[in-house]
Design a protein around this nucleic acid. Structure first.
Length: 589
DNA sequence: CAGTGAGCGAGCTTCCGCTTGACTT
């Protein structure tokens, strides 16, 4: 008996889905895209080499794309075609987003399916979700495919129109595109911000205080009823921006020290304010990269490759996602773990729900331990060593996921003020504060490692304090940090530029224009010239930080149009005439 | 006669996004 064929994108999914569908179905994967525009002139089919072709890939009439099966994808396509020929039905179960729809369409074409394939979608791999999808097949959404084509062609257009001009000026190893351009601009503008930055001097004063039985250090907070200025009270040009701050001079500083050293003080105000700590949000690609960078010291590339291993072992859900949504199953598993390992006060009455931002395509759920019962990190210790990258990253994913479903931490922040009277500067106020957590909530599972807690002395108002020593420190405001690969990726995501599957490769594609390590991206002069002397005067539109978001709006219109093909052609015509104007402006300058 | 240089044409590269695993350093 011939069996129906189900095609997914990722080989790892094949095993799980086979288990659900049983032996009645054959499940295979396309391993990503299987057709694309020709990569180079050599791969353009001979039949087209006589015609006029734009950007080595597109026929000028109606912007019809020439698609080819790249050499390294031919094997998988051949295999799938043989299976499809025998199958009574082909189910295309590619991801439920724009690229997934495109892969489905390309499969239909490349496999030369005679019978209309069944398009099915699920964004979590569970028995009900998969079975429900099989029972409710749809057809390929042409609107989505056309919006994909518009995106694909526009990217080729921008890259291949502008890059050669840029290369004429900058030599090999430099190129631009919808994503690369703004990414390089971010790095360049950060550097310029640093160069323009004017450092400002301010002072910090601290005093060692003593009561009958305890010694502690307090910081100078205010003089003459005004808070003393700190780094936040200067702008980037060194201007003093807060009228009600005391900008103390070195002379003031020395006088205050003298007063402190000779004076006696007493506690004036003790304030207790409640404080709550919110649990972390579930993880998506960018926040996983940030957490792994901050807590484990992993660079994004390393994080992704370790996560890939965990995914292929079936330990976590898909690691390239822009969604922080947890499925019902995940929430149940987290709540079960919490109720079995913590008190009932650690479990909120209702699950904590987290929403996605509006750029998200949300084809997958958040990154979390897989399954309906989470594997505890310690259960992995037979498989991985405690200091292995896999164990550390899995623990992080486990902890953040469970913590996201726990209750808030409740604490009290206590602040103590110590006052000295003085004719010139008085009242001089020293302060000390710290938080004690009354109820740990999620913090009983994970603690913010960067947080330092301070033991507070037990004082009451009116206590006499001896100041036994005081000192001052000259401080300077610091320019904003350069981007690291992690912070650049976060910024790109915020701007809607790039996708989870490409963040790491974006950084790698622009390495030729910056120097130093991954942790501090410093532009080469070539990059600065590219942005200021080439892109800004002639091609400003293509480094606009909003460009990708505006493109997405246009793609949505194509998707919703009654005639997506016509809408696509119109969009590309407009885009082409715009870029031709920019090119003309550059050539005639 | 050898060496120089102008002019011409052929051929190459470049984009973004989806997947691994083979490859090098």
């Amino acid at each position: 008996m011939p069996k129906p064929l189900v095609i997914v994108e990722s080989p790892t999914k094949v095993k799980t889905i086979s288990k659900i569908l049983g032996s009645e179905y054959i499940v295979k994967s396309s391993v990503g895209h299987i057709r694309d525009l020709p990569r180079n002139t050599k791969s353009i089919p001979a039949e087209y080499t006589k015609e006029e072709i734009l950007w080595g890939a597109v026929k000028p009439s109606e912007f019809e794309n020439i698609y080819v099966i790249p050499e390294d994808r031919k094997k998988v396509v051949k295999e799938l075609r043989e299976l499809a020929d025998k199958a009574p039905d082909v189910y295309l179960a590619t991801d439920d987003d724009r690229e997934g729809e495109a892969i489905a369409y390309h499969l239909k074409e490349a496999l030369e399916l005679k019978k209309e394939p069944k398009r099915i979608k699920f964004n979590e791999i569970t028995e009900p979700a998969v079975l429900n999808a099989i029972e409710n097949p749809e057809v390929i959404d042409i609107g989505k495919f056309k919006s994909y084509e518009a995106r694909r062609t526009l990217d080729r257009m921008i890259g291949y129109e502008i890059s050669p001009k840029l290369r004429d000026l900058g030599g090999a190893f430099i190129s631009t595109g919808r994503v690369q351009g703004p990414a390089i601009r971010l790095i360049v503008e950060k550097e310029e911000e640093r160069l323009r930055f004017v450092r400002s001097k301010y002072f910090e004063i601290e005093a060692t205080c003593k009561t009958s039985d305890i010694e502690f250090v307090a910081n100078l907070k205010s003089v003459k009823g005004n808070r003393i200025a700190s780094s936040k009270d200067f702008d980037k040009k060194g201007k003093k921006i807060n009228k009600d701050r005391e900008y103390i001079s070195e002379k003031d500083c020395n006088e205050i020290l003298k007063i402190l050293n000779s004076g006696s003080a007493k506690t004036s105000k003790i304030k207790e304010t409640p404080r709550s700590g919110k649990p972390p949000k579930p993880l998506k690609t960018t926040s996983l990269q940030s957490s792994a960078r901050n807590n484990l010291g992993f660079q994004p590339r390393k994080t992704m490759s370790v996560a890939q291993k965990l995914y292929q072992e079936g330990l976590i859900t898909y690691m390239r996602t822009d969604s922080i949504r947890l499925s019902e199953i995940a929430i149940k598993a987290a709540r079960k773990y919490i109720s079995e390992n913590f008190t009932k006060d650690h479990l909120p009455n209702e699950p904590n729900l987290y929403g996605d931002n509006k750029n998200a395509q949300a084809a997958h759920e958040a990154i979390r331990p897989s399954g309906d019962v989470f594997t505890e990190p310690k259960e992995l210790l037979g498989k991985y060593k405690e200091d292995s990258d896999e164990y550390k990253l899995y623990s992080l994913i486990f902890n953040v996921t469970v913590a996201s479903q726990m209750t808030e931490a409740k604490g009290i922040t206590k602040s103590i003020e110590i006052e000295l009277e003085d004719g010139t500067f008085g009242p001089i106020v020293l302060g000390i504060s710290g938080t004690t957590w009354v109820f740990g909530g999620y913090r009983d599972l994970i603690k913010d490692l960067s947080e330092k807690s301070q033991e507070l002395p037990d004082l009451t108002e009116g206590d006499l304090i001896d100041i036994i020593n005081s000192s001052s420190e000259e401080k300077f405001t610091t320019p904003p940090n350069r981007y690291s690969s992690t912070s650049l990726i976060n910024k790109l995501e915020e701007l809607g530029i790039g996708r989870p599957s490409t963040y790491v490769s974006i950084i790698e594609s622009i390495t030729s224009v910056f120097i130093n390590s991954e942790s501090s991206l410093k532009p080469r002069i070539l990059a600065i010239a590219m942005i200021n002397n080439f892109m800004k005067p002639y091609f400003d539109l293509y480094i606009d930080y909003e460009f990708s978001k505006l493109m997405e709006d246009e793609l949505d219109k194509i998707l919703e149009s009654n005639n997506p093909e016509e809408a696509k052609v119109k969009f590309l015509e407009d885009s082409y005439s715009k870029i031709k104007k920019h090119i003309e402006g550059y050539e005639n300058a």
